[in-house]
């Protein structure tokens, strides 16, 4: 059996770790409630936006705008949203695994979040930008900037398919990585199969689409960022909660061992004293 001193040291170190995990859990909980509010605010916006876009897709003809170019996909571009930090359970690795399964050959990558930037840099992917190191600090304005950049690259033909890998916030306990197709705008892609409806488009289809599509892409990206950030926090909360309870278990176990060691050492001392006294008589 380990000595009392050793056990005591381990208890101390585990208590320290427990304090950290508990603190991280509390931080995640408080941030999470804000992030969930943000989701509640933005969700109606981008679900409506997505259905409006499918109306747009039904009304559009490939001649009107470069955004619904048809043809083989030669190069894909994927926006990957992961976390800024680790210690969030499988959050980051789930996103990366999902990416590996679905990305195809040699895509262009725009990573958002420190973990994503580091991961794709290390793996030697071609990155569009590595300046979005913090998902937490990305705001709507950044999404518009990203969207303008990506739409311009798309029209210049640098890639012919744009999608976004993010994590869907299903509930506090379940978050799923998912892919959102953004460009090209494609009838088969987002239309629900109903007959195309007539829609008057003013001033002209081309002008309208070129102006609204970057906005719409930005809106959808913003939605994905909000979902991902809330997922990261929920995932961290769960991971830290179980780490804290594991620490509690280990500490309880060590306390038991410590007390056993203490008891046996006292017993031994008494035996020694008693036998010493007996020898003197």
């Amino acid at each position: 059996m380990a000595s009392m001193k050793e056990i005591n040291l381990r208890i101390k170190s585990i208590s320290g770790t427990r304090q950290i995990t508990k603190a991280m859990e509390l931080v995640a909980i408080s941030k999470l409630s804000k992030a969930r509010e943000r989701i509640d605010r933005t969700r109606p916006f981008y679900t409506e936006l997505y259905s409006a876009l499918s109306d747009v897709a039904a009304a559009v003809s490939p001649l009107d705008t470069g955004f619904c170019r048809k043809g083989d996909i030669k190069r894909r571009c994927i926006v990957v949203i992961a976390g800024d930090r680790g210690l969030a359970g499988g959050y980051n690795s789930n996103v990366f695994r999902y990416f590996d399964e679905n990305a195809g050959d040699n895509p262009l990558v725009l990573p958002l979040g420190k973990r994503a930037v580091e991961h794709f840099e290390r793996r030697g992917f071609e990155l569009i930008s590595d300046e979005y190191m913090s998902v937490e600090d990305i705001d709507v304005g950044d999404c518009f900037e990203i969207s303008r950049l990506l739409c311009k690259m798309f029209l210049d033909g640098e890639f012919d398919c744009l999608s976004c890998v993010y994590t869907n916030f299903v509930s506090m306990l379940g978050q799923e990585p998912a892919e959102l197709r953004l460009l090209p705008l494609d009838k088969e892609l987002i239309s629900d199969g109903s007959a195309p409806k007539f829609t008057l488009v003013e001033p002209g289809a081309g002008a309208v689409f070129n102006s609204i599509i970057p906005d719409a892409v930005a809106g959808l990206l913003w939605g994905a960022v909000c979902e991902s950030f809330a997922s990261e926090l929920a995932s961290r909360r769960t991971a830290m909660e179980s780490a804290t309870s594991n620490a509690d278990d280990i500490i309880a176990d060590l306390r038991l061992k410590y007390n056993k060691a203490r008891k046996s050492s006292i017993t031994q001392q008494i035996t020694e004293i008693v036998s010493g006294a007996g020898a003197e008589q």
Binding site: F198, T199, P203, I212
Partner: peptide, 11 residues
């Protein structure tokens, strides 16, 4: 836009 407008899309 008033009620009964035809389907319409603009920026």
């Amino acid at each position: 836009i008033l009620a009964g407008h035809i389907p319409y899309l603009t920026a």
